[in-house]
Design a protein around this nucleic acid. Structure first.
Length: 591
RNA sequence: GAGGAUGUAGCUCAGUAGGCAGAGCAACGGCCUUUUAAGCCGUGGGUCCUGGGUUCGAGCCCCAGCAUCCUCACCA
């Protein structure tokens, strides 16, 4: 049934019969392949030459294996890249003995007492808490019996082959872990999308791009922490399990605590707790908040996702725009290495010849993965051509600030203050609207004389989503939202129909959302009450008495910001699906 | 929830008109001390997603189901 697995399990017994441990143990002092490559680059090793000096240690997974008889080449991969190893029968079989003598001679300068404890490699290995190296003949047999996917360790000297390939000429070799299942095909890797998500470990070990994706994610998040710490923010953790959910418009997951016999919700947003922190005097807080929303799944939605939220006392949404630029544009510049990032989606729309602008992952200056050795596979497009093909996003700050109402007028051709026009447009677009009393068109009374109500605002927002969002490719701050859409936001001081809120759109996706936070407990209470009266969507907000009480203790005026981290990573890495930036996206159980 | 596509060896994929299930890589046996997805000779490996149906005969046609991807709706 699994022939190859059986063969490899049989190989386990053979390894043990040789007196070796197929699953290895401590192996320290290993240099990463990227570091070894750097040494190779700076040492000017000529083809056919071996670099004299200290032996180096390396370890990794066997990715390619070429056995030419008494000489074995293998390509060993670690998370910094690949390195070719060469094992010659003579060197391996005699190498251990030779090195043992070398080791003895080398220890001549060491004080006698120390030298006595280091008579040879076995003692040296034990000194490091490692098991001894296999004898040379055993090591050779281990090497001959390797399978793709095995994890191995070695000591040797760097050199170049006659063809110039940087190579570790191995003189000590050991097994570190036996793979009893075969890896995917060496050239194509694992491409089956379902298998890549279900068996992410296989995807990671087989596809260097997949590894790089998640290393980049980590670096971007580190970068964000750096930006925030520099500005005096502290990282806090607030509850995921909440007796009341709030801070966003979404359906929650529910769960139950047995000991307290209590219904709980998985948070849809950390907002109300972070603002309680502000009340308590934690003036600049942020959280990388895993949030859970019981909604549909799509290439842009996963039931659990990570949102960065931050709150800055005595600031407002203008400060949040500046931080948004610092975070997103800064990550593009410092982690990805450029303000101009191509997107696959945009590239597909372009002409054939426009494919030259690399997606983000292609031009990662800081990538841990080694560059393909100078084969020039991704020539950069001349800047003159690049300028003529709008298939990349330009993150260069500052980003434009556009009023919500202006964008709707520009792209939908209506004045959002005129509720008759709004509903007419909604009908024209086939958008279902919820009409409450007093909103039937009335020629006697122009639409824009009426107060802006929740149903009108919802219709406006549908129009915005339909007509405007996908036009916002380069980063754009959309400011001054219809107030009924923003129950937690301060009203505009001169026009209470609008709220001091922005959303940041990039590549047609909502990337960030920020407010000048509402800190008037009376208005907050009334807003919650209005929601409770059913003037809007069931999911929009629910009364949180404790939160209102917190505001009554006085919350400083503040700016608050939320950034969808997964979407930001998608954008910066050129990923078309959120599942490409989540290690283990939710999948149904296999039938 | 609605529509479309996909599902064949460990992996990547072919599969004709409905007529014995195929290739490359991987694996197994053999040869090879400078290979680059190494090469050469030989061998083994299948719940053709699952369950029904039509047929002398189904990977292929029909019905139902499952999973995944895409589009749409809800949402960030």
């Amino acid at each position: 049934m699994s022939e190859q697995r059986d063969d490899r399990i049989a190989a386990l017994a053979n390894i043990r019969n040789l007196g070796a441990d197929p699953y290895g143990s401590r192996f320290v002092g290993v240099q990463k392949n990227a570091a070894l490559r750097a040494i190779g680059d700076h040492s000017n090793i000529q083809p056919g030459q071996i670099l004299e000096g200290e032996a180096v240690r390396a370890a990794g997974r066997v990715h390619l294996f070429r056995d030419t008889g008494k000489l074995i080449f293998m390509t060993v991969r670690d998370w910094t890249g690949e390195l070719q190893w060469a094992l010659s029968k003579n060197a391996i079989e005699e190498g251990t003995e030779a090195r043992r003598h070398e080791g003895t001679e080398g220890s001549a300068g060491v004080p006698p007492a120390a030298a006595a404890t280091l008579p040879g490699s076995h003692a040296a290995a034990e000194e490091k808490g490692e098991s001894p190296w296999p004898a040379g003949d055993v090591a050779w047999q281990l090497a001959k019996a390797l399978h793709l996917g095995d994890i191995v360790g070695a000591e040797g000297k760097l050199g170049r082959t006659k063809k110039g390939e940087l190579t570790l000429w191995v003189d000590r070799f050991r097994m570190l872990s036996k793979a009893v299942r075969p890896p995917p095909e060496k050239w194509h890797g694992l491409t089956d999308v379902e298998a890549r998500y279900r068996k992410r470990y296989v995807d990671l070990l087989a596809n260097a791009d997949s590894q790089r994706q998640f290393v980049l994610r980590a670096r971007i998040i580190d970068y964000i922490r750096g930006v925030l710490h520099q500005r005096g923010f502290i990282e806090v953790d607030t509850p995921v399990l909440q007796p009341l959910y709030g801070g966003a418009a979404a359906r929650p997951f529910t769960t139950h605590h047995n000991a307290l016999d209590m219904k709980l919700y998985l948070r849809i947003s950390p907002e109300l707790y972070l603002k309680r922190c502000l009340v308590g005097g934690l003036e600049r807080v942020y959280e990388f908040a895993r949030c859970f929303r019981n909604e549909g799944i799509s290439p842009r939605h996963n039931p659990e996702f990570t949102m960065l939220e931050l709150y800055q006392a005595y600031g407002d949404y203008h400060d949040m725009m500046e931080i948004t630029e610092a975070i997103i544009a800064g990550a593009a510049r410092d982690v990805i290495g450029t303000y101009q990032i191509g997107t696959k989606a945009r590239r597909h729309e372009g002409t054939e010849g426009s494919a030259g602008v690399s997606p983000a992952v292609g031009n990662v200056g800081a990538s841990p993965t080694i560059q393909e050795s100078g084969d020039g596979s991704a020539p950069s497009v001349p800047s003159c051509l690049r300028a003529s093909v709008p298939d990349f996003i330009d993150f260069t700050p500052p980003w434009p600030r556009r009023r919500y109402a202006d964008l709707v007028r520009e792209h939908a051709g209506i004045d959002i203050a005129d509720s008759d026009a709004v509903f007419a447009k909604a009908r024209e677009l086939g958008i279902p609207v919820l009409l409450t009393q007093g909103h039937e068109p009335n020629p006697e009374k122009p639409g824009y004389d009426r107060p802006l109500r929740i149903d009108t605002a919802v219709a406006i927002n549908r129009i915005f989503e339909h007509c405007v969002e996908d036009k916002l490719i380069n980063p754009t701050f959309v400011i001054d939202y219809p107030a009924p859409l923003c129950p937690l936001t301060k009203r505009h001081p001169t026009d209470p129909r609008y709220a001091l809120r922005f959303e940041c759109f990039i590549n047609g996706m909502e990337m960030g959302n920020a407010y000048s936070e509402l800190n008037d407990p009376k208005i907050q209470h009334d807003t919650f009450s209005a929601q409770l009266r059913g003037e809007g969507d069931e999911t929009m907000a629910i009364m949180d008495e404790d939160y209102v009480e917190a505001l009554e203790h006085a919350m400083p005026p503040a700016g608050g910001l939320g950034i969808g981290i997964d979407r930001m990573i998608m954008l910066l890495t050129g990923s078309e699906s959120i599942r490409e930036v989540l290690l283990f996206p939710l999948q149904r159980p296999q039938g």
